[in-house]
Simulated scan of single mutants.
Amino acid sequence: MRTGKSVRKVWYKHMWVYIAGGILLFLATYLIIQGIRCSAAVEAGRERLSTYGAKTATLSYGNMSYVDKGEGEAILSVHGIFGGFDQAYDTCKDFSSDYRIIAPSRFGYLGSDVLGDGTPAEQATAYVELLDELGIDKVYLLATSAGGSVAIRFALDYPERTNGLILYCSAMPYKEKPKSFPEYAGPPTFLCNDFAMFLISPLFEPIMGMESSTIYSMLPVSDRKKGIILDASVTNLDMAKNFDNYSIESLQVPTLVFHAKDDKLANYEDTINAINRFPNCTFIPFETGGHLMTGHSEEIKKAVSEFLLNN
């Protein structure tokens, strides 16, 4: 015959089994629902990409996907991590009524192949080949985030093809040669897929300072994965690893730099430390706005328009 104590033990044991089972059932249900939502969002993302009218140039090393819209002097848009021709075009679309916007997918993103090791120098060379293909002699470079390394490299290597350099919360050169740097500067590879990024999107605000809805402009992540990993392992490290090859003081083109003080992805202090290295530079800081400089679209549009008109 069981004692009251042994009965309670059995009851507690069963209770914890039920609780654990309930938690597992909840998690399983949650993951299934999120999986369904993610699949729908990825499909919507693919449909969204189809509206850009992207073209493909077959270059010496492979394909490069790009959007080419508008007329007039050309702006070459150099997108950041998790980007592609969509992010590149959306960054510049406010200027499409007055300028020709060339918005390529960088190496590994949305239909673009990789030349060699995929370094910023090789990406700049590929851009020149694309511009030759399109019959464009000179461009304004407008770069965001990780794209800054590539745009700066382009302006240094091809000043004769560059009218001006515009950097939005961009990667910036170091003030002095760093003693050490990481081997990888980006999201872990296990997060570089549609479902993982969709699951963590509610954390975008506390981690990255941007709304969780930003995920919908990043999908499908699976079609950008190679580029994301390339940025994290090559592009984002190049200005540190090859510091001596970035002679910013020798830049021959005017530069316009925007940066928000509360940017959680590109350190504002790095910009402050580097800005004096640019010989002909206008710097416009914002107190708030984060990495996407939210709330400053009119100020940015006005400043960029003046820069484009005067240079």
Rank of each mutant, 00 (worst) to 15 (best):
Lys5Tyr: 15
Ser6Glu: 15
Val7Arg: 06
Val7Lys: 04
Lys9Gly: 11
Lys13Phe: 13
His14Glu: 15
His14Pro: 00
Met15Tyr: 14
Val17Met: 08
Tyr18Arg: 11
Ala20Phe: 11
Ala20Glu: 07
Gly22Arg: 14
Gly22Met: 12
Leu24Val: 08
Leu25Glu: 03
Leu31Tyr: 14
Ile32Gly: 04
Gln34Cys: 15
Gly35Phe: 03
Cys38Glu: 11
Glu43Asn: 12
Ser50Trp: 03
Thr51Ile: 10
Thr51His: 14
Ala57Lys: 05
Thr58Val: 11
Leu59Tyr: 05
Asn63Cys: 09
Met64Phe: 00
Lys69Val: 14
Gly70Pro: 02
Glu73Trp: 13
Glu73Leu: 14
Ala74Glu: 08
Ile75Ser: 02
Val78Tyr: 10
Val78Ser: 08
His79Ser: 04
Phe85His: 09
Phe85Val: 09
Ala88Gly: 05
Ala88Cys: 04
Tyr89Thr: 05
Tyr89Glu: 03
Asp90His: 04
Asp98Arg: 14
Arg100Asn: 15
Ile102Thr: 02
Ile102Phe: 05
Ala103Gly: 07
Pro104Thr: 09
Pro104Gln: 07
Arg106Met: 13
Phe107Asp: 02
Phe107Cys: 09
Phe107Arg: 00
Gly108Phe: 00
Gly111Asp: 11
Gly111Ile: 11
Ser112Met: 02
Asp113Arg: 08
Asp113Ile: 10
Thr119Tyr: 05
Thr119Val: 09
Glu122Gly: 06
Gln123Gly: 06
Gln123Trp: 04
Ala124Ser: 14
Val128Ile: 10
Val128Met: 06
Leu130Asp: 12
Gly135Asp: 07
Val139Thr: 12
Ala146Asp: 12
Gly147Phe: 01
Gly148Ser: 10
Gly148Trp: 00
Val150Ile: 14
Ile152Lys: 02
Gly164Arg: 00
Ile166Glu: 00
Tyr168Gly: 00
Pro173Ala: 13
Ser180Tyr: 03
Phe181Ser: 03
Pro182Gln: 10
Pro182Val: 05
Leu191Arg: 06
Cys192Asn: 13
Asp194Trp: 10
Met197Asn: 10
Met197Leu: 15
Phe198Trp: 11
Leu199Gly: 11
Pro206Lys: 02
Ile207Ala: 12
Ile207Pro: 00
Met208Cys: 13
Met210Pro: 07
Ser212Thr: 07
Thr214Lys: 13
Thr214Pro: 08
Met218Gln: 12
Leu219Trp: 07
Leu219Thr: 03
Pro220Ile: 10
Asp223Val: 07
Arg224Ala: 13
Arg224Met: 06
Lys226Glu: 14
Gly227Tyr: 00
Ile228Asn: 05
Ile229Met: 07
Leu230Lys: 01
Val234Tyr: 00
Thr235Phe: 04
Leu237Tyr: 04
Asp238Asn: 12
Met239Ser: 07
Asn242Cys: 01
Asp244Ile: 09
Glu249Thr: 04
Ser250Val: 01
Lys261Gln: 13
Lys261His: 03
Asp262Ser: 08
Asp263Lys: 01
Leu265Ala: 08
Tyr268Phe: 15
Glu269Asp: 15
Thr271Cys: 15
Ile272Trp: 00
Asn276Ser: 12
Asn276Glu: 14
Phe278Ile: 09
Pro279Asp: 10
Cys281Phe: 01
Pro285Thr: 12
Glu287Thr: 13
Gly289Gln: 08
Gly289Ile: 10
Gly289Tyr: 11
Leu292Ser: 10
Leu292Asp: 06
Leu292Trp: 05
Thr294Ala: 13
Gly295Phe: 06
His296Gln: 08
Ser297Tyr: 09
Glu299Arg: 07
Ile300His: 02
Val304Met: 04
Val304Asp: 01
Glu306Asp: 14
Phe307His: 05
Leu308Ile: 06
Leu308Asn: 04
Asn310Glu: 12
